[in-house]
Design a protein around this nucleic acid. Structure first.
Lengths: 133, 133
DNA sequence: TGCGTACTTGCGTCATTGTGCAAGTATACC
DNA sequence: GGTATACTTGCACAATGACGCAAGTACGCA
């Protein structure tokens, strides 16, 4: 199913840590931090299921925390690149950055497959086998 | 590029929150929590770049924290479904669950696109437009 | 059986983060 | 201009999490 690209490899973790690779950027902790809180995850899931941009008040309606907390969480999600924010009069409308997110997630999936393919480890779908017996 | 599937939609966030959808499971905070710490992110990036299963000691060589801290972080990554662990004698070997991760990330990307497509919001690549003016 | 290596766990400390309340800012409407 | 609505920010507090050290467990080897 997945076509594996060229596969740079570094024998030891110490050496691997020095080498720069796209996966370093894709594993940006700020992005994952944005989604690691249950309240924030619920808010994003809510926006995805809703399918339309929503105001802060509307989003607050789907979680049982104070409006100020919702406002702060939305800011964190915006900083993490998950949501985008548009001011419309006195309302603030938040939207899921769907294209960016999907692109980022797929790129990360590809990088992980490229890095781990061919080592014959369980769960990598490889056949060659490079793990110590 | 992306073929959009059927697109369930719920007008308000409050209603959307009640409706169960795959995105709820895919946005599991435990998974994102595993990757939200800089040290853990570096460890995973290191394993991906390295391309082979590594022992706890070897992984500790690529980050400047105590071995006990590394051991704890690896456990969190295993719990979050990022790594798998195999005991070999007195060594413990950790492997990136590449197939699972790639599958999960792609599934999430697809769900986000399905949920957000067609609303005409910036960053969704849609043309129809359902956002309030 | 004793010893060394590899890893895990208990404990205390410090920093970060999630939360609610209250006050503040910005915008629309009368 | 005054008031209501929508959201943000300051502050205090509790909970969580990352960390190092030290002690403990598991396993291989002589």
């Amino acid at each position: 199913m997945t076509q594996v690209r060229t596969k740079p490899r570094t024998p030891t973790p110490r050496q691997a840590a020095r080498r720069k690779a796209p996966v370093d950027r894709l594993l940006d902790p700020a992005f994952f931090k944005a989604l690691c809180d249950p309240t924030r995850a619920r808010m994003v899931a809510c926006l995805v299921k809703c399918g339309v941009p929503c105001t802060v008040s509307a989003i607050a309606g789907c979680c049982d925390v104070d409006l100020s907390v919702v406002s702060r969480h939305l800011k964190i999600l915006e900083t993490g690149g998950v949501l985008s924010k548009i001011k419309k009069g006195r309302e603030v409308v938040y939207t899921v950055r769907a294209d960016d997110l999907a692109h980022r997630l797929r790129a990360l999936a590809a990088e992980i497959e490229v890095g781990c393919a061919g080592c014959g480890c369980p769960g990598t779908g490889s056949k060659t086998g490079c793990c110590p017996a």
